[in-house]
Amino acid sequence: MENAIEIKNLRCGYGHKFTIHDISFNVQRGKLTSIIGPNGAGKTTLFRAITGMLPVLEGSIRINDNDATRMTHKARARQIAIVNQTVEADFISIEDYVLMGRLPYHAPLQLFESSEDYAIAEKNMRLTGIWEKRKKLMNQLSGGEQQLAAIARALTQQTEILLLDEPTSHLDISHQMRILNLVQLLNREKNLTVLLIIHDLNLASEFSDQLIMLKEGSIHTAGTPEEVLTYENIESVYDTLVLTQSNPLSGKPCVFPVSEKHHLHLRKSPDL
């Protein structure tokens, strides 16, 4: 069982309109895979299909070798933990929020958390660094701390797969790095399989083992960051001229936006 998520010939969409046409890819176990692509390329639709919010019209999604379309919500929540773009939990304390990650493991009529649940929640709150703030309400936290709480909640679900839907898009660079470093640490140390949907190409390049680039509902390119993030690919998917170079430290490709003023210059010397 090398693949944590297997998607084959997936087609889905809203109503009778397909927004995803025939997508097939695998998310390898223990790898950090990112999905990139312009707005409207189908990233979120794909995410919603994997999480069971959207019916799969054709094709199949298998999670840990189980058919995802036939899973109950509870079974899925034990396989995949999800961190969304924002947290909508205004008046709930952090510890209560993190403890909700134990809900998939509760017996049908169980009303109260066991001491094991508390222990797991405590461990993850310490790991993500929000333990000192656990009595605060979610709306008293900054966006970055809310995302840390969301990750703690997701870890409390004790799944092998972590799905993050643009977790850093509202954050400044320090919180972006804090969140993604934490995700990378979890991926490396705890062997968590991570599927990340992300807008920022440089962050995607720096942190991912695998990149999947979507364009208009199908896969444009998939592979390592070096294979995917070439200026030709970015120009054809995003319709934007950029310059790519390697990061001097990590060797991963870096994308430099180029303003229209310099386009002419760029055209003259394509080997830059």
Partner: peptide
């Protein structure tokens, strides 16, 4: 209704997020 209290608690996050936590 008392047995639905964990469900109601999860739905404070929104119905979609409750589903992600395994709530029907």
């Amino acid at each position: 209704a008392f047995f639905y209290t964990p469900t109601l608690n999860a739905m404070r996050l929104g119905a979609e997020k409750a589903i992600q936590l395994g709530i029907n």
